[in-house]
Amino acid sequence: MVEPVPSTRFTLGNNRAERVSILGIAPGRQFVFRGPREVADQCGAAFGVDLPASPCRANRQDGRAALRLGPDEWLLIALPDDAVLASLRHSLSRFAHALVDVSSSDAVFEIRGPSTALLLNAAIPLDLSPKTFPVDACTRTILAKVGVLLWRTEQECFRLQVARSFAAYVHDVLAEAAWGLPDA
């Protein structure tokens, strides 16, 4: 699989790089699952990761993750060579649901460092304090003028997905904002 954008493009070339880095990473295999809660449980069993029941939460296990995007919508993420997603369709064939391969839709950034939340808050109006947006919180939201999917994977690391045609814009907004990072 070809990466949507070369990673090198997303390393900050200024002295703030120590406090935050923006890196383009491979999206892996991604499927959207939509369906009723009972089928979501079946899906979780077959996928090996429970599909979260609480809003805006992600579950993770062994390189796989399930992010709840809405009451009947989850994003399933696996490593590029993981065959589990391809076999899901078969496992769920008896149930009413939607399972759609979106592996190529988004560009994915990993934003890491002590100032990550501050940097994102230059363009994202959500409260990203660990109290309200802890590790494994995830949500769709707005960054500057585009919709993104935000997932806090560690205390100081966020995974940010955006439809691939917006990748350059999102990168450039964050790189511009990095110049103005306030003191942490």
Partner: peptide, 12 residues
């Protein structure tokens, strides 16, 4: 209705 929509504009 049991129907689900997925935006695949940028998938393809």
């Amino acid at each position: 209705l049991q129907v689900w929509l997925t935006d695949v504009t940028e998938q393809w």
